[in-house]
Design a protein around this nucleic acid. Structure first.
Length: 110
DNA sequence: AACATGACGGACA
DNA sequence: GTGTCCGCCATGT
């Protein structure tokens, strides 16, 4: 298994409940800035076997990436149950729910 | 080895 | 805001 896959799994597992992260964000935090598509692969192939919080990963526009359907509804329900407000079309307000890994380091700047 | 495929992202019209 | 195009890169044919 690729090292990136392991790092991605760790990154995804560290997303706190009640927050969401984007594919690109997970890729960057996992050390491979342009590996968003690999993050997709990790979610599809490992979410069940590794018990990953797959529902906390969304697309760059801070919107559920799944096509409309039962999966979409399921992700929306899971996020709602964690307190994340998701609109009917799947969009989430980044200012309120996007995960910010180390806010303390920049909290007092600017 | 060449080619198609993704729960994507960014740039641009 | 929406739609298109192209880059990305591990996997499966």
């Amino acid at each position: 298994m690729e090292a990136f896959t392991l790092r991605a799994i760790r990154t995804i597992r560290s997303i706190p409940a009640g927050r969401v992260a984007t594919y690109g964000q997970v890729a960057r935090l996992s050390g491979s800035p342009r590996a968003a598509r690999q993050v997709v692969r990790v979610l599809v192939s490992c979410s069940r076997s590794h018990g990953l919080p797959w529902h906390r990963v969304v697309g760059a526009p801070c919107r559920i990436a799944l096509p409309r359907g039962v999966e979409f509804d399921f992700q929306l329900a899971l996020l709602s149950s964690e307190g994340v407000e998701v609109s009917d079309d799947g969009t989430i307000e980044p200012d309120r729910f996007l995960w910010r890994p180390e806010p303390s380091a920049f909290f007092f700047e600017a």
